[in-house]
Amino acid sequence: MAKIELQNVSITFNVYQQKRLSLKEYLARGLFRRSVNPVLRVRALEDISLSARDGDRIGVIGHNGAGKSTLLKTLAGVYPPTAGTREVDGNICSLFDITLGFEHEATGWDNIQYRAYLQGETPSSIRAKMDDIAEFSELGDFLNIAVRNYSSGMQMRLAFSIATAINPEILLIDEVLAVGDLAFLTKAKARMRELMGTARVMVMVAHDLGAITEMCNRVVWMEHGRVVAEGPPGVVVEQYVAAAAAAAGVLPEAVRAA
C-alpha cells in the first residue's frame, strides 16, 4: 500500500541575489559584517500537511511561484523538509524537469536504461520492458541516435514512456502533459488513467484546470507556499477561478475561456 504523509512541512532556504556566494564574499561578510550580495530568505513551503492513501489522485493548482513544484519535489524526496516530517511509502516515479535528466550524448536506448535504473529497476527487470517503452514512445529509429538531437516533445515522449512503464506506486507529475502533440497527449492521458486504475497515489501539478477536474478526485489550492483550500475538484477549482477572476477584474467565465 502506498502512502504519503506530510506533517507541518516547511521549506525555507537562502538565495543570494547573485547566483552564488563566492568564498571572497563569505570571508568578507564574516570579517566586516557588511554584504554587497544580500541574502533573500525564501519560504517555499509553510506548514503544509498533506496525506494521501491508495486511490488518491491529487491535483495541485495555484499561481506561478506558489510552491506547487516545490511541494512535488519534497514529496519525491529531492528537497529535504527544513521543518516537519515527510513519510512516503512506496516506489515513487517523478515526472518533472524531464529534459534535465538525460545523458544528451547517449542514444535513446541507453537513456531508457539509465532512467529505468534511476527509478530502481535492475538489468533483468528492464529487459522485458525495453520494447514496450520503445513502442509506446513511437520514436522508432530515433532511439538509435543521441538524445541531443531530440526535440523537447520527443524527449517528453521518451521520459513519459519510461516513467510510466515501471508501474510506480506513487506518480508525481509536473506540467509534463503540456509538451506533447495532440495524438500523444490523448495516448498519455489514456496511459495515466490506466495507471490510476491500479489504485495507487498520484499527485499532479497543472495549469490546465480541465485536466485537473477530469483526472483528480481531490484538489489542493496553494498560494505563497501555503494551502488555501483543499477538497473535491469542482468546489476548489471554482473558488480558484473566482479568485483569479476577481484579481484580474473580469468575470470567471473569461478566466475559464482563457
Binding site: 519525491a76 524526496g77 529531492v78 517523478s94 524537469d97 534535465l100 535528466g101 538525460f102 534511476l118 527509478q119
Partner: peptide, 10 residues
C-alpha cells in the same frame, strides 16, 4: 549531474 540530483533522491 544536477539533472539527476533534481529528479531523484539518490
Amino acid at each position: 549531474n544536477e539533472g539527476y540530483i533534481r529528479q531523484s533522491p539518490m
